[in-house]
């Protein structure tokens, strides 16, 4: 069992629809991932988090890498902000403005 909130389910559904436009095999890929996650020795909430993170990384491959590099900073997830308003602007500038 994998537990997902209503909004997570909505996001996942939309992501599968969008990714299918560019990669018809995405559904098979995701089904495989679900099987893999179900076998993990974790509770349903942890499994839900792992699955959601996986889908997020598929949907936003570039942003996902950036957010990993920004994990010690509290910034909007979509990176749509003016870094000049943050005290740590010099540390994050290169991360958010490069591929």
């Amino acid at each position: 069992m994998i537990y997902l909130t209503f909004s997570q389910r909505k996001f996942i559904k939309e992501t599968i629809e969008i990714l299918s436009i560019f990669c018809p095999e995405v559904k098979t890929l995701i089904k495989e991932k679900i099987k893999e996650i179900k076998k993990l020795d974790k509770n349903k909430f942890q499994k839900g988090e792992i699955f959601f993170s996986y889908i997020f990384s598929l949907r936003y491959p570039v942003l996902n890498k950036k957010l990993a590099a920004l994990k010690n900073y509290k910034v909007p997830w979509n990176l749509e902000f003016d870094e000049d308003n943050y005290s740590f602007k010099d540390e994050i500038k290169n991360i958010i403005n490069q591929l």
Binding site: E14, T15, E17, I18, L19, S20, I21, F22, L58, R59, Y60, P61, V62, L63, N78, L79, E80
Partner: peptide
Amino acid sequence: KEKKSKLAFFEMVLS
């Protein structure tokens, strides 16, 4: 997205 247009790129965010 519903039309399956390639304009509906996946890495787009609400600004």
